[in-house]
Amino acid sequence: MTHLAQTLCSDVQTEPLPGTAKTGSRYVLFEWPGAWSKDILDGGTFSPELSARLNERMSLFDATLLLIRHPTREGREIDTHHCYLVFADEGIIEVKHIDGPEALLDLDLSGPGRNDASVRTKPMLLVCTHAKRDRCCAVKGRPLVRELAQRYPAHVGNDVVWETSHIKGHRFAATTLLMPWAFSYGRMNVDAANALIDSAMDGRYFVPGNRGRGTLSAPAQAAEIAVAKQLVTDGVEVRIDQLRVLNAEESETAARVQVEDLNAGTVYQVQLKQRAIEGVVSSCGDAPKTGAAWYVEAITPTDQ
């Protein structure tokens, strides 16, 4: 076995995390305790016909389907399937129980309140363990979710931590997705993940490991994180919905993003540049290549 084949892509930490979040604002989280194929809609998890119909249904609403399962054996013994509907722009999770994947075809994902589902008040943390997509997710994701499951064991009302199928960015494993806001996090360990959950439960913005809010473009993600980090460094407690991106002027290599602190009434002008990064390993077994990342060059506060 070559050295390249032995090296985990997530051990090659050449990239900054901000600006790398999975993008999307609507998600369907479907509980499926069985095996997941490399692409959950490639016909290997469900039948080819159902997979094609599910892909068409998700595309109709610009939604992302993720498969989730409880990390413990007892938590996977189910009669019906949890189905969580996430509307990240509104910060809402809805939940209902359905009999099987065919029922996903009947969902109306145009907005909240259309599927006879209950509103969920607790956040959810999804930990990627999709080994068939990349082995980093098994090597680093599974130990993390097993530890977290001890704090959040399987019982009604305690469904905070779930395994999930591919959420992009396995080179940042262990990777997590925080709902309902669609924040991606990378290079997480148990202490960081527990602190993240505690912050989310209290509605606080969590900076360490933050890859960005998925409802934003890559430079806007990096800009929002930079402002949050500066405020936290200055001793300000930042709430999850305290910052709002007002405007983003973007080109291929430069961006200017306006981020508003809704509490203070301050607008921050954030200047960013995209720079090349050498030695990026996208997936386990891949050769290193040149990548790119967004870097903040200046943050200038202005009063409205």
Rank of each mutant, 00 (worst) to 15 (best):
291 G>M: 09
263 N>Q: 12
276 A>D: 07
277 I>G: 00
266 T>W: 07
252 E>D: 02
65 L>H: 06
266 T>V: 15
244 R>M: 01
250 E>L: 06
246 L>F: 03
34 G>F: 15
24 G>M: 10
53 R>H: 02
195 A>R: 13
212 G>I: 03
37 S>N: 05
225 I>Y: 11
295 Y>G: 04
299 I>R: 13
301 P>H: 10
152 Y>S: 01
194 N>P: 07
197 I>W: 08
210 N>F: 09
25 S>M: 08
47 S>K: 07
81 H>W: 05
74 E>K: 14
60 L>V: 06
89 D>C: 04
19 G>Q: 00
113 G>Q: 10
231 L>F: 00
282 S>F: 03
287 A>F: 14
133 R>H: 15
206 F>Y: 14
151 R>M: 06
71 P>W: 05
75 G>T: 00
206 F>L: 07
290 T>L: 12
39 D>C: 08
141 G>S: 15
81 H>Y: 08
56 E>L: 10
152 Y>C: 02
303 D>M: 12
243 L>D: 01
37 S>K: 10
233 T>M: 07
107 L>T: 02
58 M>Q: 09
243 L>R: 04
281 V>I: 15
91 G>P: 12
112 P>V: 05
273 K>D: 04
94 E>I: 00
284 C>Q: 09
46 F>H: 12
163 E>I: 06
208 P>H: 10
119 V>G: 02
36 W>G: 02
90 E>I: 10
92 I>S: 09
218 A>L: 10
73 R>F: 06
184 S>C: 08
20 T>P: 14
86 V>R: 15
166 H>I: 07
301 P>E: 14
62 D>H: 12
105 L>D: 12
83 C>E: 05
104 L>S: 04
213 R>S: 00
137 C>I: 00
137 C>K: 01
194 N>D: 13
83 C>L: 11
207 V>W: 14
129 T>I: 01
67 L>F: 00
284 C>G: 09
3 H>A: 09
88 A>R: 13
59 S>A: 07
299 I>A: 03
46 F>S: 12
9 C>R: 04
57 R>L: 03
149 A>V: 15
191 D>T: 13
18 P>K: 01
140 K>A: 02
11 D>T: 06
264 A>M: 14
159 D>P: 12
17 L>P: 01
121 T>S: 11
182 A>K: 03
302 T>W: 11
248 A>I: 06
